[in-house]
């Protein structure tokens, strides 16, 4: 459904572009192709990483070390797992609620969610290739900090949730 909309929009835009300027359109498509070729090894690595993390990190495995009593260490562990693993975002929330049902703490799960969505160990090579080393490491580091801030906020407001 989502991809249907996406493809329709792109086909319409490309046609408009083609009718207005064939040369520019050709160039745009060549650039798109170049990006795909250039990023291919990094992209394929991301795919393998997604497959491996989903197969290894079952809900039982994760909830076993980020239980409600795991405290700050649990938050640290959750952020490490979240940074290394890479899951499609529509998998993240159903997984997270399963984790909470299996006994994981909401504070720890919050750190896991935040790092899963915005820290990408698997996409580091690709991000580095596009933005350079320093930007990539700093951005990912700041996202880890954000996960701790978020977990802290959830810990504070937990009685009201």
């Amino acid at each position: 459904m989502q991809s249907m909309i996406l493809y329709s929009v792109i086909v319409i835009l490309t046609s408009i572009s083609w009718l207005n300027d064939r040369k520019k359109t050709k160039k745009a498509i060549i650039k798109a192709k170049n990006m795909l070729i250039k990023l291919a090894p990094e992209l394929l690595a991301i795919l393998l990483f997604v497959g491996l993390s989903l197969a290894v990190l079952t809900p039982d495995v994760i909830s076993s070390f980020i239980g409600e009593q795991s405290g700050l260490i649990g938050v640290v562990l959750a952020s490490i797992v979240g940074s290394f693993a890479m899951l499609p975002s529509f998998v993240v929330f159903p997984l997270a609620s399963t984790l909470v049902e299996n006994g994981a703490g909401l504070v720890q799960v919050s750190a896991l969610i935040a790092t899963l969505v915005s820290v990408g160990f698997a996409s580091l090579p690709m991000e580095r290739r596009i933005f350079g080393k320093e930007f990539t490491y700093l951005r990912n580091l700041s996202a880890v900090v954000m996960a701790f801030v978020f977990a802290f906020v959830i810990w504070v407001v937990l009685p009201w949730l």
Binding site: Y7, S17, A28, I29, I30, K31, A32, K33, M35
Partner: peptide, 13 residues
């Protein structure tokens, strides 16, 4: 692929 084509179009237009 469609996202990259979009990026290409943004780049040109």
């Amino acid at each position: 692929p469609p996202i990259l084509v979009l990026v290409g179009l943004i780049d040109q237009w």
